[in-house]
């Protein structure tokens, strides 16, 4: 089978049979294929988003937004997979960092569906468009999150519950830090309660 053929089959498996696919991708540390999947997942929605942005009058800033999305996305992928790997090890995971890096790169694939979603949204009346786009993008983000859980589970041979905890731990930590920060600053800035 050619390299392209293997890549296409991996894409199918990630989207429709993620459990086994993530184990294979992480086990074989398919970082090159993962990079291709990640770039497609970042660039396709970015290109699709250009036309609505142009209609909204922010088209001239789009090259900057595109570059930020691309390089910011690559950086975030690298850092987030490292953090997930560390947390997975805390939870008893036995996988490799490169394997998890490859699996989380493939986990972004549902984002390419944003392109057809944008076109479908254009067919709708102006009032229904934001709701449709919002729900559609939310669905895709949930799909990505589910694939990330599969990636952690497959790469580190963890149970489903532990894999969910690994993915949610950074999110919950950030949320807790935000709440603590807001409370702290709020306490410092709010005027004293009138006695």
């Amino acid at each position: 089978m050619t390299a392209m053929g293997r890549f296409l089959e991996n894409v199918y498996d990630v989207l429709f049979q993620p459990g086994a696919a993530m184990r294979l991708i992480a086990g074989q540390r398919l970082c090159g294929q993962a990079l291709a999947a990640f770039l497609l997942s970042t660039l396709i929605p970015a290109v699709a988003g250009y036309y609505p942005a142009q209609a909204a009058g922010i088209g001239k800033f789009y090259p900057v937004i595109l570059l930020l999305q691309l390089f910011g996305g690559l950086f975030f992928w690298f850092v987030s997979s490292a953090v997930l790997h560390l947390i997975a090890e805390f939870y008893g995971g036995r996988g490799s960092a490169a394997g998890l890096f490859a699996a989380t790169g493939f986990a972004q694939l549902p984002r390419i569906l944003i392109a057809p979603l944008v076109v479908l949204a254009m067919l709708l009346p102006a009032g229904a468009m934001p709701l449709f786009l919002g729900l559609g993008i939310l669905g895709i983000m949930v799909w990505v999150l589910v694939l990330e859980v599969s990636a952690v589970k497959g790469a580190h041979e963890l149970s489903g519950a532990k894999a969910i905890l690994v993915v949610l731990t950074p999110l919950l930590t950030l949320l807790a830090a935000f709440v603590a920060l807001v409370t702290l600053i709020g306490t410092a800035f709010l005027p004293a309660w009138p006695g």
Binding site: V47, A48, V119, A126
Partner: peptide
């Protein structure tokens, strides 16, 4: 499907046309 969507988004944008 994705490719057709990208082409469609480029050449056919009802929101922009309405505007």
């Amino acid at each position: 499907v994705v490719l057709i969507s990208l082409v469609a988004a480029a050449f056919w944008n009802p929101a922009a046309k309405r505007q």
